[in-house]
Simulated scan of single mutants.
Amino acid sequence: VCFGFCYYNVTEETYRLRFRSLTVPTGESVRETYNRIKGLYKRWMRPEMKNKEQLGETIILEQYLRVLRPDVRVWVKENQPLTGEGAARLAERYMAAHREPPRTSKGTVIVGRSKVEEPMDKTMGVPGKYSNATLICFYCQQPGHKASLCPP
């Protein structure tokens, strides 16, 4: 959300990140640290413009984004939800779009009530992996897997 500061790319997110920073500038007194953190809080949360529920929702949204898988978090943040509920809806949409079909322990893909055998990678012998060395993960940019299978 931009409140006229976006020209310099300074947004509520910028203030949130600065607020959450664990660094203290060299030579800053304890009182100056307190005042700096309080000022960052006010610029991030904008309490004069929000009611109690909206302030709480901002904190809930931040924590919710923190616990999401990295690939889901990036996608949800790109869609700029304003509430935790909005973020949850976006995360559900992302997960539904990237859902892998259920598999049996033998690597068989279950489609509806029927089973479809999936080819195995001859080099690794692992079902569901691609042997194509040119496949690059969108999330980590490493070869050999896709983003939905990216190890955390």
Rank of each mutant, 00 (worst) to 15 (best):
A133V: 14
T134W: 07
G112L: 06
G125W: 10
G125N: 13
Y41V: 02
Y41E: 08
A87P: 13
E118T: 09
T108D: 14
K42S: 10
E118A: 15
Y64A: 09
K122P: 06
E92S: 12
N132F: 06
G56K: 14
R66Q: 12
A87T: 09
N132M: 06
G56T: 07
S114M: 08
M45H: 04
Y64V: 04
P127I: 05
R46L: 14
Y94K: 04
V109I: 15
P127C: 03
E53G: 05
R66N: 11
E100F: 12
G112A: 05
M49F: 03
P81H: 06
I110T: 12
E117S: 07
E48S: 13
D71M: 04
T134E: 13
V67M: 10
R43A: 08
V116R: 09
E78S: 09
R89G: 02
N51V: 09
G112C: 09
L82C: 01
V74W: 01
Y130A: 12
T83H: 02
L40Y: 14
G128Q: 00
T104H: 02
Y41M: 09
N132E: 08
E100G: 08
A96V: 04
Y34K: 11
E117V: 10
P101R: 12
I110E: 12
K106F: 00
L135A: 08
H98P: 00
L65F: 00
N35T: 06
E48W: 15
V30F: 03
L90V: 02
L135M: 12
I136L: 11
Y34Q: 10
L135F: 08
E92I: 06
P81S: 03
P101H: 12
I59D: 08
P119G: 10
G107L: 10
G84D: 10
K42E: 14
K129F: 07
G84K: 09
S29Q: 06
E100A: 15
L65V: 02
K106E: 08
V74F: 00
A88K: 11
M120E: 11
T58E: 14
E92G: 04
R66C: 06
K38L: 13
N79R: 15
K50N: 12
G39D: 07
T134N: 14
Q80K: 15
G112F: 06
R93N: 13
G112N: 06
K115C: 13
G112R: 08
E32H: 01
G107Y: 12
Y130N: 13
Y34H: 12
N132I: 04
T108Q: 15
V72W: 03
I37G: 04
N35I: 03
K52Y: 10
M45W: 03
I60R: 15
